[in-house]
């Protein structure tokens, strides 16, 4: 699966099938958190539009607090937008998480009272799979995530990164058609991140799922995705949707490509001002 990097120059500029049907979309979405006590209402997101094309890998980058997690929750049906509409596979999303959507949350969401194995099996049991299928999928996922030695351990005995892998496995075994990941590799070291990125790419290719990945690492966004949405400071809006042009067959070795450096550089130039705004810096000095 690594063979593709050498063939890059001949590959078409973009491998994303722009004629594929829209899989999920948000239109005119805003999210305003109501006032609490003395704290005035917070306009966290939008107005914002996004069409996710079936089978694409979409990354979202943006300064801290710009509304990335909020966007994910709205898209997943976990919270209702203040204005605008969300659809998944042609059906409006409201109030409920639609079947076929999987979410990996930013916080640790492993159940402390279940073993790693039972955590991963949780969703499958709810969905009523039969025991042999559950065993097959869970064993595979636990091995795939490098947790085989810890299958019978409790989350408290794992590191933060390992717990996050438990949550990723728990979502992936359900084979969702739309996978929403909120900084899933945040607690991992750079090398493991790259490898996990490769695994995520392989999984994405094999399952044909649509992926939306929120990340704070620009290189990760540039490396993994077909398109990167760069968000403004709060209230978050897309300032640019950047096509990466990578072939579908790709892996972490593209970080040595020239175009990779250009891509990351471009993303940073887009986000630099926004990040400064978000962290309250004065701008203009570099103009």
């Amino acid at each position: 699966m690594a063979a593709s990097v050498e063939t890059m120059p001949d590959a078409p500029k973009t491998m994303r099938d722009i004629h594929a049907p829209v899989h999920a979309s948000v239109a005119g979405v805003t999210r305003i958190f109501p006032a609490v006590g003395e704290q005035p209402p917070v306009h966290a997101l939008g107005p914002l539009d996004l069409d996710l094309v079936k089978g694409e890998f979409f990354a979202v980058v943006g300064p801290s607090g710009c509304g990335k997690s909020t966007l994910l929750e709205v898209l997943a049906g976990l919270s209702a937008p203040t204005e605008g509409s969300v659809t998944f596979e042609g059906q409006p999303v409201s109030g409920q998480v639609p079947d076929g959507v999987g979410v990996v949350f930013q916080e640790d969401a492993s159940f402390p009272w279940l073993t790693v194995w039972d955590n991963v099996a949780f969703g499958l049991r709810r969905a009523g799979f039969d025991a042999s299928e559950i065993t097959r999928r869970v064993d595979y996922a636990v091995g795939f995530m490098g947790l085989a030695d810890f299958a019978q351990a409790y989350p408290a005995q794992l590191s933060g990164g390992m717990r996050q892998r438990v949550c990723i496995a728990r979502t992936l075994v359900l084979q969702p058609r739309l996978i929403l990941l909120d900084e899933p590799f945040g607690a991992l070291d750079q090398q493991t991140r790259l490898l996990m990125g490769d695994e995520l790419l392989r999984l994405w290719r094999e399952t044909g799922a649509t992926v939306l990945l929120i990340t704070h690492a620009l290189d990760e966004a540039a490396m993994l995705s077909d398109r990167v949405g760069a968000m403004s400071a709060r209230p978050g809006r897309f300032i640019e949707l950047v096509e990466t042009g990578w072939p579908r067959e790709r892996d972490s070795r593209i970080v040595s490509e020239d175009s990779f450096g250009r891509l990351t550089g471009h993303l940073w130039s887009l986000l630099r001002e926004e990040s400064m705004k978000a962290s309250g810096h004065q701008m203009g000095r570099q103009k």
Binding site: I32, P34, A35, G37, P40, P41, T82
Partner: peptide, 9 residues
């Protein structure tokens, strides 16, 4: 919207 939010407390 904001009017509602403002007199809420």
């Amino acid at each position: 919207m904001s009017a509602v939010a403002l007199d809420k407390p």
